[in-house]
């Protein structure tokens, strides 16, 4: 029975897409970011593999072809940046300040956590890119020899936290300026935060999606410096 799975290249690919489809259906039904399609699909696949007694390598024989698309997908991040170029130029100071502040704060906080809990270097670099979108964060974790399969769920859950609590946090701490709200969402909780920022308003959403891309690039450029600190 298991030979069908182990000998097929399409098994892992299909299982990934099918599980993601179920994730999207559940997400639509409950309309809550806690029911994130990526997290649901991962949980479903892990459960299925455990029950059917299939190991990760067998699944990933097909699954890896899906991962191959990550690089061209990341390249396409140039499109939203290109389209928003006018807004970027109009608000370049605010964006630059917001993005640099967000990225540096995030990495300094992770450094502090690493020092307090005496993490290993591997664990530290695994968590370092936690605030940026998975496309960039996954790459950084790989480049710095972190555990990228832990980095991705940490990034997704960070996005969920920002999405769920972001609006209240902004209200409580008096972040009212629409551009500042967008930058706060984008820098702290990437694409999932942007979904919330878009619900609050168009300008908030645009600023959030711009800062996701730019803080991703900025973090990539300085991450190896921060990796060297611990």
């Amino acid at each position: 029975m298991n030979e069908i799975f182990t000998e097929s290249v399409y098994f892992g690919f299909f299982l990934s897409l099918f599980a993601y489809y179920i994730g999207v259906v559940i997400n639509k039904k409950f309309k809550s970011p806690i029911f994130n399609p990526l997290l649901i699909s991962a949980i479903l696949i892990i459960a299925f593999l455990a029950i059917a007694n299939i190991d990760y390598e067998t699944y990933n024989a097909g699954g890896q072809y899906l991962t191959y698309f990550l690089t061209p997908c990341t390249v396409c991040y140039a499109i939203p940046l290109h389209q928003e170029m006018q807004k970027i130029k109009e608000n370049k100071l605010a964006i630059a300040v917001g993005v640099v502040t967000g990225a540096v704060t995030s990495m300094l906080c992770v450094l502090a956590v690493a020092l307090i809990f005496e993490l290993t270097h591997e664990q530290y670099v695994t968590l370092l890119p936690k605030s940026i979108t998975s496309a960039f964060g996954y790459g950084i974790s790989e480049e710095l020899s972190g555990i990228s399969s832990i980095t991705v769920p940490v990034i997704i859950l960070t996005g969920v936290v920002g999405n769920v609590f972001g609006q209240s946090i902004c209200r409580i701490t008096g972040i009212r300026n629409r551009i500042a709200v967008g930058l706060a969402f984008g820098s702290s909780s990437h694409a999932l935060g942007t979904v919330k920022a878009l619900e609050i308003g168009e300008l908030e959403g645009a600023m959030s999606s711009i800062s996701v891309a730019i803080s991703g690039i900025f973090t990539v450029l300085v991450a190896s410096f921060f990796a060297g600190l611990y």
Binding site: G12, S16, L17, A19, Y20, P37, L38, L39, S41, A42, I45, I46, L49, A50, Y56, Y59, N60, G63, Q64, L66, T67, F69, L70, P72, C73, T74, V75, C76, Y77, I79, P80, S134, A135, Y138, S148, S149, I150, V152, P153, I156, A191
Partner: peptide, 18 residues
Amino acid sequence: MLNIMIVTFVPSTVGVMT
């Protein structure tokens, strides 16, 4: 590509089981 980006992360997220 931008729409399917997140799906490309399914296999690496499943990798957390290892």
